[in-house]
Design a binder for these strands. Sequence first.
DNA 1: ATTAGCACTCTCATTATTAGAGTGCTAAGG
DNA 2: CCTTAGCACTCTAATAATGAGAGTGCTAAT
Lengths: 349, 349
Amino acid sequence: MVFDMLDDRSKQVLCAVVQSYINSPEPVGSRFVTKKYPLGCSPATIRNIMADLEEFGFLSQPHTSAGRVPTDRGYRFFVDTLLNTEKTHEGDEISKEFVRQFTRKLEGIKNDLNVMFSEATNTLSVMSSYVGVLIPPQPEKITFKKIDLIRYKGSNVVVILLTDEGIIKNRVMRVDPLVTQEDLSRIADYLNSEFSGLILDDIRGMLVKRMKDEKVLWDKLISKAIKVCEQALSFSEDEIFVSGLYDVMDLPDFSNIARIKELSRAIKDKHTILKLLDEFSDAEGVQVVIGDENPVEDLRNLSIVTAPYKEGNRPMGVIALIGPTRMDYLKAISMVGAVAKCVSRTFRD
Amino acid sequence: MVFDMLDDRSKQVLCAVVQSYINSPEPVGSRFVTKKYPLGCSPATIRNIMADLEEFGFLSQPHTSAGRVPTDRGYRFFVDTLLNTEKTHEGDEISKEFVRQFTRKLEGIKNDLNVMFSEATNTLSVMSSYVGVLIPPQPEKITFKKIDLIRYKGSNVVVILLTDEGIIKNRVMRVDPLVTQEDLSRIADYLNSEFSGLILDDIRGMLVKRMKDEKVLWDKLISKAIKVCEQALSFSEDEIFVSGLYDVMDLPDFSNIARIKELSRAIKDKHTILKLLDEFSDAEGVQVVIGDENPVEDLRNLSIVTAPYKEGNRPMGVIALIGPTRMDYLKAISMVGAVAKCVSRTFRD
DNA sequence: ATTAGCACTCTCATTATTAGAGTGCTAAGG
DNA sequence: CCTTAGCACTCTAATAATGAGAGTGCTAAT
């Protein structure tokens, strides 16, 4: 396929252009290539090759007398080469050390998921200087294990939710004052016996269904109980973790305000980005989406590098970096991979 | 004082310039004033007045042949006039209705503080199109009432904290496996009997002190208990609620990227902004800080409108709007006031 | 005290000009 | 047949020149 339409030297030229442009965002000319990436031929030759590459759609010219700039397709080729040659793992000496240290750091805070997730997102963005994003496990991925309902001061109830993955969530909610602690315990027992081992989302569905089906049969209390359960289980806060939106403004790619607004808008629309990234939770390893490959309008000028994190073999959520298409893919890929590995590892225990 | 150095017509001219400039950010000329704000005199007269106002430091010219622009001092005068004439309450018919509706909305979600706070911040920013900020109650403001420590699955402990203000916070933490539920109950009892009615911050200080003083005397378990307490009470998440950073970019005042970065930086530095705003928590009613009056470097080009929200008479935290100095102060002041009122009202029950 | 009139100033948009970078093409050389 | 030197050509971006327009400050008259 694509790899075959180019001879070795063409590939080298393409990669040279991409690397140079990633390094600094100025159109790269033929003379510059020969100086910086000695391929043993003259500018004229490079020019010919570049013309070909342009014809294939890997490069383009901002205007007639400028150098070349990679197209999204050009980046794609570059990334595929990167991923194929496994050059990605070249930085493993650094990476190994990083994974070790960072895993230890996560160990220390893993009992508070929110803290752990924001730490991961932060690290990602700080080290890459792109925008770090993390999608927490979605309800449809979480297995229910045990629930406790504890009456608390008047009509408040503390819900403590324990899942198979060891995730503990807790929240306070309000119930009808008529519901006693005893009732709550009964409700909890009911939930625990009926639904243990099932997935949160399904449970919620089942509850709603039961509520409808047997509305007439069940007594008031039970009906109320179901309502409590449903509330208790709606933990989907539609929340995602984002970090680095500020530092990204220092990149020349975001020197014009329209770009920043695009990015902000895309991130602000949590639902869309959640849906988008969630699709990668089943993927194997690091995935890259480049510029116009992106289904979301506002992200057409950006690239996304994602990797799922897992609990054992089951995918839990997604970690991602969002940056300009002119992104340091090598770094981004290994960073996302490493952080995903750390988080997964922490989940395992 | 300041009010006396200007005759009535001068004040009118100043206010006209400010209003016009707030309305659209273009230097306003003498001719324009006579057209839009009929004061019964000619452009030439206005010119004379404007020259005076400039001498006093209320107006300035971007360049010789441009119209006038308000200085920060000019805005200050305008705002003081606004606050003095109580014109602020002119919009009360709208305001009243808003307060009623919004209070009801808050009622529905007040049992989850996080939700309530972000709702308040959101509303503020959406309706004003500036950046909404909310400082949650700080540990030194929260009165301890009761704590529960519940062992949960292995070495996890659920901490449920109840305060005088009815704030319930809960979190999961990890303790030494040797500590039993019985120990935890004893610890909780100890805390409840010793510290009820005191302020969180003080309690923490006392705990630390005890830990030091009696280190040798107390047995291992007690020492561990103290440690648990301290952890349990460190609820200061240094978190603030921010909303509207995105929409603010649409304002012409933020068309250049430096401004956005300034604003982002200021907000990102949560500690600074927290400290800054916290100083207004004891103030009475709405306060306005304009441009260079601001102690924080990054906020010198911005204005802040703040108001404390209270539980009864005790100030709890602060609500604020951050926007350009060319801010619609009338709107901002009444919005911040209204939202603060709603939040306070919700706290009362 | 106010105002009409006018000269003056400064900005901003428009146009012209030029240096520089980089290309594409052609023709010569291995 | 691939490579390369040479050269004309193209396009940009920076700089300068020009002029219209807006708004002022000042003066002299009311």
